[in-house]
Each structure stands twice: as structure tokens, then as C-alpha cells.
Design a protein around this nucleic acid. Structure first.
Length: 202
DNA sequence: TTGACGATAGTCT
DNA sequence: GACTATCGTCAAC
């Protein structure tokens, strides 16, 4: 329908793409079941000069290989041995930029998402945080390296415009090991949305 | 082959 | 707000 075209992902400013993804809608369709929601929180990872990125200094391994693919590819990897985290690969082939999708506001197939999370009542924690979000949408490492213009996982533009003043930028989560790069304000979230994992302390 | 280490979540207080 | 379960990845042995 209104899937974001490859050109959206091929741009070279991953931080800008990270902002632009707020308010877009992420969908998955597994076993014919459609689930999705509006993206409310993202983080940009910009190798090779970003120590927080798996592909820092162009490190290529079986895992990071996906990030070297062309923009518009899904990068899914496992964290803490338990959680699947979903990223959007951006830029052209061999430039390993990616945007981590941290939270969504559920819209489509909410009952299915509750079921996958083992919850009975809708609560912001259902889809807030990258591991929780991926679980609610049924994203697993089987989605790794799939095209974001496929029929299993994709992102749509619903024409929603997010004013600048609603976007909060902050340092990324859990990247203290990255030295100076940990301070880069490359996390973005919607100021007035409940479906955000961590807010800036006021 | 092995061991150290997380881009976390859920549970309990 | 604090505590910990838990396992794939990667680099070194």
C-alpha cells in the first residue's frame, strides 16, 4: 500500500532517517496474522566511526554481515541470549548503518500481541523496549536479512507528520561501553507518547 | 574449544 | 528502584 520505498532507506544520514521513522507504522505478517503499530522510539547506529555499533571499524562477522547489505533490509539479532532486537539497515551496500526500533504504539492485531506477550491487559510495557516490541510483533531471527519491502515485515507511511517539538533526542540506552560515542544524542522518541521505554530525567 | 560479555525484561520489594 | 536469569557471539587459546 504505502510501504516506504527503497529511496527512504538509501539516504546517507542515518540520524535523520532515525527521526523520520517516528510516526511511521511497522507491520509483520507471520502465518497470515497481521500485527503492527506506530514507531515511537528509535536509535541510530552509524558505523564505522561509532563504537556502539556492532559494525564499528567495519567489523564483519556472520552476525554483522546483514548490516552491510543495502538499505531497506531487516537486521535482527539476539541480545542477552534471550531477546530479539529489530533494526532497519540504511544507506547503500557496504555502509553498515542501522536504526534500532525500540518501541511502538500497537495499532493492528492488539489481541495477538497481548497473547504473544502473555498479557491480558494493554499496558505501555507490552511494546516498550526493543525486546518486548519484537516479541509482540512476533519478530525472530528468521526475519534477519529479509527485505523491508517483503510481505512478512515492512514499514508504511500513513501520512502522519510529527512536529519537531514533539521529538525528544537523548543519549542511547545501554551503550556505556562506547566511550565518547555513548554521549551522542542519537535516540529519538515522541514526547507525548506512553509507549516509550525510558524517558529523559527532568 | 572455551570463557567473558552484553543495544534486556520480568519479577520482587 | 533493585536484582538476576540466560545464551548466542566473538576472539583468544
Amino acid at each position: 500500500m504505502y510501504k516506504l520505498p527503497f529511496e527512504f532507506y538509501l539516504r546517507d544520514d542515518v540520524v535523520q532517517i532515525s527521526r523520520d521513522l517516528l510516526g511511521k507504522h511497522l507491520y509483520t505478517k507471520t502465518d497470515g496474522v497481521l500485527t503492527g503499530g506506530m514507531i515511537t522510539e528509535t536509535e541510530a547506529y552509524r558505523a564505522p566511526d561509532d563504537k556502539a555499533s556492532h559494525a564499528y571499524n567495519l567489523r564483519r562477522t556472520a552476525r554483522t554481515e546483514t548490516m552491510f547489505k543495502t538499505g531497506g533490509t531487516a537486521y535482527v539479532y539476539l541480545c542477552y541470549g534471550i531477546h530479539s532486537l529489530f533494526n532497519v539497515v540504511t544507506n547503500i551496500q557496504n555502509v553498515p548503518h542501522a536504526v534500532l526500533i525500540r518501541s511502538i504504539e500497537p495499532v493492528e492485531g492488539i489481541d495477538i500481541q497481548l497473547q504473544r506477550r502473555g498479557l491480558t491487559k494493554l499496558h505501555p510495557k507490552m511494546t516498550s523496549g526493543p525486546g518486548a516490541m519484537a516479541k509482540a510483533l512476533g519478530i525472530t531471527r528468521q526475519h534477519n536479512a529479509l527485505s523491508l519491502l517483503s510481505d512478512e515485515i515492512w514499514i508504511e507511511d500513513k501520512g502522519l507528520v510529527i512536529p519537531d517539538q514533539q521529538i525528544v533526542s537523548a543519549p542511547r540506552v545501554g551503550v556505556d561501553y562506547a566511550g565518547d560515542d555513548a554521549l551522542r544524542p542519537w535516540r529519538f522518541y515522541l514526547a507525548d507518547n506512553k509507549f516509550v521505554s525510558k524517558r529523559l530525567k527532568v
